[in-house]
Design a protein around this nucleic acid. Structure first.
Lengths: 311, 311
DNA sequence: AGTGAATATGTAGCAGTACTACAATGTCCC
DNA sequence: GGGACATTGTAGTACTGCTACATATTCACT
């Protein structure tokens, strides 16, 4: 019985529905002999007759009809399997996993939640991932979409991932409220080179800008603290432990911290959505990408005084 | 996509569950190379990657997982199909069609209905078929069980059908109440040869006994009427239109009709259940056959004064 | 850093299977 | 009884899935 296969079941079913070997053969585009042989093969696995002669035609016995009915289920399941990939790709409400580093997560995810809460929208699965720049692309193996950042002049993303540009965000200098430098509307590398710095850990994107400031000022900076998380950085800056680079749009404003634009070095970061090219074959993933772009537009224009043209 | 077959889906599913080509190969008792080739073949039909490398192992992508899930349904349906014949054979409550000629139907079917009314019993499908003797065996093509009758010396049933003997029923002479012959406890062919006869149509089983009476009495009988249905015969006999042969047990008694045993010719008929041998592979069919046998025992002993040994 | 074990993939050849073409057998209908 | 129709059997062919073996890649351990 275990060598009953789909082909034989299909033949049996056609015979049952069409009522003759010849008709089944035409339907399956083979010779009647092929049908006859498949039936003989199938019969070998079953101890009761599945077919019987009726005059010169061949028809199913009740046992044959029982098996032919089961064959319908097999074909249904196979058809469903054959369409399951398209279904998977086409589902509007599929699960979409989105990873992001902290500041992008805080800025983008609330937008996504609001925009995609209606039934029929993609179901979101968030995960925060604060990793060094090189480690963003590999995350696309695990997540459908990865929000990543890199500095203007850093190495571009590898070509194995697709990139959707979201923000080109200025990095400002964060000063404690009341610090003397807050008097200046914009700061040069020389202005800030002697202050104690709070920076990200080595390997993280913003570090390159810190190094650019040191180079432009021709000084060795004093790296007092290494803190990745901007919410913590803001607290420590406000407490007067040093100054820091902070993103203009995606970090939550802090009353004890003033932001001043930096001139003389290119202090900007790209925030991009990375994904493997084939993941965008899914409708749900494309929906989230579209929503991310419109969230980016909202984010970059949310503080009118701070938008790029005027910085 | 249409060349996705069960084998490829099975391979994909094993890969998904076991997590490596080698493990899937062991599970399916083939070499890893075979697995790899089947996966390549499957991938050819699908426009998005189903698998991806993870270190030195191979794992499913989300699309692959979607297809593997569908593969489970396919295997389930196939397993069900492979067991559907046993299920069909083993079901206690399967449908069993029973054909019978009129007097057997009237005598046996009420027993069957009473005995097999509990839930879980075979579901009965009755059909009355009053045919000539030669036409009983072919009815086994259409019905699971056929109640048929034949006379003692008639040709036996062909060996293509299985026979379950039910009754060996005496045929008595039916006389109008008050007819002079009712005075005799038993009748010889000579006693009845000059009466007007009511017989079945030519070709029907009882006809041979009529001819035997004529031969034994060396007379030509007067065949006044040809009526197959015993209920009608009884009415006409009671009305005085003639005498007739009637089965002792399976014809309903009629107040205007007296039955007298016939001696000197072998006047008995066999009532048998005929079926194709393979139909008895079904539990439900065997249940009905058993019930028919016990019904036969009840019928032949229901009128104690008329049982065979005393006739 | 290097080496060996583990894993997957490619290639060639082999074996089993499903098909076609054709012949034979059986059935229906006039 | 003859001709058309239908199924089955037989021999040969094409295809497909497998094994064996070689190769490439990754991992773990020293």
């Amino acid at each position: 019985m275990s060598l009953v296969d789909e082909r034989q079941l299909r033949v049996l079913r056609e015979l049952g529905e069409l009522g003759s070997v010849t008709a089944a053969a035409e339907a399956l585009r083979v010779t009647p002999s092929a049908i006859s042989q498949q039936l003989r093969l199938l019969q070998r696995s079953v101890p009761v007759p599945l077919t019987e002669r009726e005059g010169r035609r061949l028809v199913l016995t009740p046992a044959g009809r029982a098996l032919a009915d089961a064959a319908i289920e097999v074909e249904t399941a196979l058809a469903r399997a054959r369409h399951s990939v398209e279904e998977f790709l086409g589902r509007a409400d599929g699960r979409v996993s989105v990873a992001a580093f902290h500041s992008a997560a805080a800025a983008f995810w609330p937008h996504l939640v609001r925009a995609l809460s209606a039934p029929g929208s993609p179901r979101l699965a968030f995960a925060d991932e604060d990793v060094a720049q090189d480690d963003f692309p590999p995350l696309t193996r695990e997540y459908d979409i990865v929000l990543a950042h890199r500095l203007d002049h850093a190495a571009p993303w590898p070509r194995t991932v697709s990139v959707t540009a979201l923000l080109h965000e200025p990095l400002d200098v964060a000063l404690p409220a009341g610090h003397p430098l807050t008097a200046k509307p914009r700061l040069s590398p020389r202005d800030v080179a002697d202050e104690p710095w709070i920076t990200v850990h080595d390997g993280f994107p913003l570090m390159a800008t810190i190094e650019a400031i040191a180079a432009a000022a021709d000084r060795r900076l004093h790296l007092a603290h290494r803190i990745n998380e901007f919410a913590v950085v803001a607290q420590v800056v406000a407490a007067g432990a040093g100054i820091a680079l902070m993103p203009r749009w995606t970090a939550r404003p802090h009353v004890g911290v003033a932001l001043r634009p930096l001139v003389g070095v290119n202090a900007r970061r790209h925030i991009d959505a990375l994904h493997r090219p084939e993941r965008a074959a899914r409708t749900a993933v494309r929906t989230v990408l579209t929503e991310l772009r419109s969230a980016a537009a909202a984010i970059s224009s949310q503080a009118p005084g701070d938008t790029e043209p005027r910085s």
